[in-house]
Computed example of a mutant assay.
Amino acid sequence: MKLFIKYMVSSRCKELVLTELKNLGVQSQYVMIDLGMVEILESITKKQRRILEENLRHSGLEVLDSKKSRMIDKIKDTIVEMIQSEYMPVTNYSDFLSKKLKYDYTYMANVFSDVKGITIQQFIIINKIEKVKELLLYNELSLTEISNRMNYSSVAHLSNQFKKVTGLTPSFYKQIREKREKAMSDV
């Protein structure tokens, strides 16, 4: 069972939610918690959910209804599917998401950022960089080919975003991988 929690954007908030779940008798080993989301492997009763909602509300957090929860899952799944596809759509991401999910983009963006603590655009960038890292590891495509495949305007734009997210340049990241592979083959 997934619960999406609005305004849960820090580790302190995660600890608060975990404490509230423990107080309700939910076993912590069955709880997966991330910013904006809690996944409980056991189900909770309606009464437990109501108590959780009330206790979290006093701390400034809000459990979202299931409609918004499903929407956030759909947004994340659509973005991951879009990025993992062979070729990313050339259209504007906001138009693509609105058309695919049949929601107003501003509404989706507001709900997403309230819950996840980052914007949809930031989520897209993070996932694109993960895909770029994967493509760099395969060593089958040049940086120019990766840039084109991931719809970056230039290799420089890709490199800047990569460095901003990872703290490394793509070429340095590739060198680290190559050194690691060489060290492993020497063993």
Rank of each mutant, 00 (worst) to 15 (best):
T169K: 08
V26A: 01
L97M: 08
H157D: 14
P170Q: 03
I146P: 08
S43G: 12
S94G: 05
S153H: 09
K163L: 12
K47G: 02
D65V: 01
T106V: 13
E20R: 09
K163I: 03
L168Q: 11
M8E: 08
V111N: 03
C13R: 09
A109M: 06
S59L: 12
T45M: 05
N160K: 13
E81G: 04
K163S: 07
N23K: 08
N139V: 00
V155R: 10
G60I: 04
I118N: 07
H157A: 15
N92I: 04
S28D: 11
R12P: 00
E140Q: 13
I83Q: 04
Q175W: 05
I126H: 12
Q27R: 13
Q27C: 07
K47W: 00
D114A: 10
F123R: 12
D34F: 06
D186F: 07
D34K: 07
I44H: 03
E54M: 05
L137S: 13
G36L: 07
I118S: 03
S154H: 07
N110K: 13
S159E: 08
Q48R: 00
D73Y: 06
L141T: 02
I44Y: 03
V155T: 14
K116V: 13
V26T: 03
P170H: 04
I51N: 05
V132A: 15
I51S: 13
N127S: 06
F96W: 04
G60E: 06
I75V: 15
M82Q: 00
D73I: 13
K128C: 05
M37K: 08
S147R: 01
E181I: 05
N160H: 11
I33A: 05
E181M: 05
E54Q: 10
Y87K: 10
E140W: 01
I83A: 07
A183Y: 04
S85E: 10
N55W: 09
I51V: 15
Y152R: 02
T91C: 10
I33E: 03
M88R: 08
D34S: 09
E42F: 00
S142A: 04
V38A: 11
Y7N: 15
Q48G: 00
E178A: 03
L135E: 13
Q48L: 02
S159C: 11
R12S: 14
M150G: 06
K116P: 01
S69A: 15
S11P: 06
L97K: 02
D73V: 14
Y7Q: 10
S98Y: 01
M108T: 04
R12Q: 14
R50A: 13
I118D: 05
K46H: 07
M82E: 01
